[in-house]
Design a binder for these strands. Structure first.
Length: 165
DNA sequence: GTCTTGATTGTTACA
DNA sequence: TGTAACAATCAAGAC
């Protein structure tokens, strides 16, 4: 059972109450939601800013799908430049898709997740060794992981090139 | 020039 | 275990 959670929930309480037409893209409310922003900022400042080297989160299957969907959407709607519109349309499409249709995106997402896990492992090792004031060991292991990543990326590049075609 | 917003779902990380 | 934050995208407004 899916529930509206996180940002969506927060938006549901505020933004979602407004008619979508009212939510024009680019029409940023001048410091409209200090609550939400400050929350994000706090987290960002306490985490992301402290760990700029921290690997970025892997895209979920939906985001992988969205990447492709954006291209299609742009082609079909060259005049629509609002990212919110793409997100909305993508969400509708995603929900209408069957498991079989979602499968390839989920597979891709799983791959990215595996990469992320590896990167996080290396990242955590680095953090540990940094505590000791020594990171030669992790540097080595990191480079090993990086090497693996390079190989994988190379494979992925090939795959992507094929897809590009 | 830099930052923030919007819209979506899924996943991660943290309390 | 529940929930907030974040992942991509980019035009445009605010500062």
């Amino acid at each position: 059972m899916k529930t509206t959670k996180g940002k969506a929930a927060a938006r549901n309480s505020t933004e979602a109450l407004k008619p979508s037409d009212d939510r024009k893209v680019g029409k940023r409310k001048a410091v409209a939601e200090p609550d939400r922003r400050s929350k994000r900022q706090t987290k960002k400042e306490t985490k992301a800013k402290k760990d700029p080297n921290k690997p970025k989160r892997p895209p979920s299957a939906f985001f992988v799908f969205l990447e492709e969907f954006r291209k299609t959407f742009k082609k079909e709607n060259p005049n629509v430049k609002a990212v919110s519109a793409v997100g909305k349309a993508g969400g509708v499409r995603w929900k209408s898709m069957s498991e079989a249709e979602k499968a390839p995106y989920e597979a891709k997402a799983a791959k990215k997740k595996a990469e992320y896990t590896k990167l996080m492992k290396a990242y955590n090792q680095k953090q540990d060794s940094t505590d000791d004031g020594e990171d030669e060991e992790s540097d080595r292991s990191r480079s090993e992981v990086n090497h693996e990543d390079e190989e994988e990326e190379g494979q992925e590049d090939e795959e992507e090139e094929e897809e590009d075609d």
